[in-house]
């Protein structure tokens, strides 16, 4: 009788593919990446899909949300005063209260991203080497200033007030932008969000590519997770880096083939539903008075932030 067990499970791995002792495998870093991304996608999908009609923000017309989002993102980018940025953060926190989202989880994510991109990247700007000014905290004293090539290093290196202001401004901009985009994507399902972007005259064809890519990403993520689970279950000891590289490259080829199959199947499904080369997405609900009022309030709020 023919066996249904895949051939690779029946053949013994050559001994030279392994290194070190049995026990802990070196798969953890791949697993962490895959698990982390897959988990973020899963949370997003669940949050956005369950957002439905559960909260005030979720019930708003996606077009209203997208217009308000683009307007406020531009306002955040144009505003330079810390007072205005802090006020924006306050407003966004109130909006999160009306979104029905798990604020602790979302803010943890926002703070992590803001710390990485808003603080760590900008932190050196607090030093007088980058931003000259009155030193608040001295860090190193070199005795005398040094000049080499196009660079000048002052005798005393320290943190300046002006530098702190710049770092705080960049941090707040990143924090507010990430908060705003998370508020939008976590309170609106992705297909509805994409349709709303038609207001900016983005062709339906391109929106459809986004929508398909989003769906494929979930399918491919699940494939990657399953593949690694299958591989991990076979690893009883460390394997050589060379072998590991071959395995990872092989998985990418497998993903590519899987993507091709998905694409062929999707195309066949589209043809069977009468696709003739032109995509027209169904329109969103019409804007109501409530939506217009929200847009007016947002416009006034943005103006207030700019004036502050």
């Amino acid at each position: 009788m023919e066996s249904n067990i895949p051939a690779f499970l029946l053949t013994e791995e050559p001994r030279d593919r392994f290194s070190g002792d049995a026990g802990k495998t070196r798969f953890s870093f791949i697993e962490r990446t895959i698990a982390g991304t897959a988990n973020s996608l899963r949370i997003l999908y669940l949050q956005a899909e369950s957002a439905g009609n559960s909260s005030f923000i979720a019930r708003l017309n996606p077009v209203t949300k997208v217009l308000a989002f683009v307007y406020l993102i531009l306002v955040i980018s144009f505003v330079h005063s810390l007072k205005s940025q802090v006020s924006t953060s306050g407003f966004l926190a109130v909006a999160f209260l009306f979104s029905g989202l798990n604020m602790a989880r979302v803010y943890r994510q926002i703070l992590l991203i803001s710390f990485l991109f808003g603080f760590l990247l900008a932190a050196p700007a607090a030093l007088n080497v980058v931003t000259p000014g009155d030193i608040l905290v001295s860090i190193i004293s070199l005795g005398e200033p040094h000049d080499f090539w196009i660079y000048h290093v002052p005798a005393r290196i320290g943190i300046t007030l002006e530098g702190c202001n710049i770092v705080a401004r960049i941090f707040m901009r990143v924090f507010n932008s990430v908060s705003l985009s998370f508020l939008l994507v976590y309170s609106t399902s992705f297909p509805r969000l994409l349709k709303a972007f038609r207001i900016f005259f983005i062709p339906d064809t391109l929106l459809m590519v986004f929508w398909l890519a989003y769906k494929y990403i979930f399918i491919l993520c699940r494939t990657v997770e399953e593949t690694y689970l299958a591989l991990k279950s076979r690893m009883i000891r460390n394997i050589r880096n060379e072998t590991l590289r071959g395995i990872a490259a092989g998985r990418i080829l497998y993903l590519y083939e899987k993507s091709q199959i998905n694409y062929e199947q999707t195309y066949a499904a589209m043809i069977s539903r009468g696709y003739a080369g032109k995509i027209i997405l169904a329109g969103e609900n019409k804007m109501t008075v409530k939506d217009l009022l929200i847009l007016l309030c947002t416009a006034l709020l943005g103006a207030a932030i700019l004036i502050l």
């Binding site: 986004f210 494929y216 999707t266």
Partner: peptide, 9 residues
């Protein structure tokens, strides 16, 4: 459309 969607994913 499906080709680009697949390539993007």
């Amino acid at each position: 459309i499906p080709y680009l969607g697949m390539a993007a994913a």
